[in-house]
Design a protein around this nucleic acid. Structure first.
Lengths: 227, 227
DNA sequence: ACAAAAGTGTTCGACCTACACCCATGG
DNA sequence: CCATGGGTGTAGGTCGAACACTTTTGT
């Protein structure tokens, strides 16, 4: 039924792993902290010159998550605080001429890590909500990743991946607000977090704040559930 | 670092699509309706003779979901009432000797369809919760699929995929009870379903039941969100 | 004293659970 | 008239949203 000219009989379907890498940074104009991600400029056809999600072909001797981590390392020099498989995209026409199935991961990097980021050649960080015109189906993939992140932060303790080991509840709230893009009630947020048991007070307080010194906390299950 | 003998330089990583196909049937001993799925006996190494999830290599001219549907058709002759991507599995050692990445889908089939099921050669239906000793990492995959199904039925209207177009609320509740494996309060279940707006009364009632005739319903958004 | 954020208390409504109770049919 | 499930009512508990209010620091 479908016409399939088999040039390259050996490698008809190729497999790539791409990664959506999120970090929190201040917005260039408004200054409020928002989601950023690194993109890579394509230096080959198809879509030469356009921006795309970082990724690469799956090597025979590496696991899927390992491949995502290597991509992260290669493009930013960073290690993820959180890494999870997002979805696999395999529409026949998602790449012109050849057939590529992409297994996509999403990662969160912590600000202390992020500060050390070394942008590789042809790498540029951009504000996640303002991205458009990416190569392939990467606009849709990014949208999907944003949806997943925003959904998951409401029921899963992934916000810690955006924080240093010690933090105030205001810091944690700021992460939620930045991701969701709307303010949260400090009083209710506090109670919910404390009731969830995901957080433990260190005993010390943060000083030098021009107001009442907030207590410092550490995450409860610091067992690195997911790297 | 890793030693990779490159015999077969062309096709080092191969891509397969497998499908976990669920149907509801009466349990062979207890008689209560439970989850079943079809397995395929492997006729080649590796794992020759063992049972495995139905699947096959991804063809260059078919989408991922289409591949899953074809597998379903080939092994059971059925069409899914629901089909969704589950996860992609790609550990380096999940298949001995060769490297296979499997993109796994899960499907639900309706009883009226199920009745027409024509088991292919080397195909056998088994009770989902009693499966063990499958080939590859398929035990883990099945467990993952069961978790997802049981989680998703609590917040998503997928139970309809196990029902004919017209049904009573008792039918719908029976599906939930079979999947979750525990009884639900009829009164509360009724209110929740009606409040969810996923269901519309047809006006007619089911007769011949030796008790008060229950109202018949149809699903509200019969727009085939997902096949 | 004042601003500003930390932290506590309280009220309201939505919703879930358990369970009592009435309704309509076949036998 | 009785058994059986359909269907309604209701009281108690949990939880989140909204918001008033007190506390503790720096300036």
């Amino acid at each position: 039924m479908a016409t399939t000219p088999d040039l390259l009989a050996s490698d008809q379907v190729s497999l790539a792993v791409s990664t959506v890498i999120f970090a929190l940074r201040p917005h260039p104009t408004t200054g409020s902290t928002t989601l950023w991600l690194p993109l890579v400029r394509r230096i080959r056809e198809p879509y030469e010159g356009l921006w795309a999600l970082p990724g690469g072909p799956l090597e025979p001797d590496e696991d899927l998550a390992a491949s995502a981590r290597h991509t992260l390392e290669r493009t930013t020099g960073l290690t993820p605080g959180y890494l999870e498989q997002l979805y696999s995209f395999g529409a026949v026409d998602r790449s012109p001429a050849d057939r590529v199935v992409s297994i996509v991961y999403w990662a969160l990097v912590r600000p202390d890590e992020d500060a050390r980021a070394t942008d590789g050649e042809n790498v540029e960080w951009v504000v996640a909500d303002e991205v458009e015109g990416l190569a392939f189906d990467h606009d849709a993939i990014l949208g999907y990743a944003l949806d997943r992140l925003r959904a998951k932060i409401t029921y899963s303790p992934i916000a810690f991946a955006f924080l240093t080991p010690e933090f105030t509840l205001a810091d944690l709230r700021a992460v939620h607000e930045a991701v969701l893009g709307r303010p949260l009630d400090p009083a209710n947020f506090r109670r919910q977090v404390l009731a969830s048991g995901t957080v433990v007070p260190t005993g010390s307080h943060l000083t030098g704040t021009s107001h009442r010194p907030p207590a410092l906390y550490r995450r409860a299950g610091h067992l690195e559930e997911n790297r």
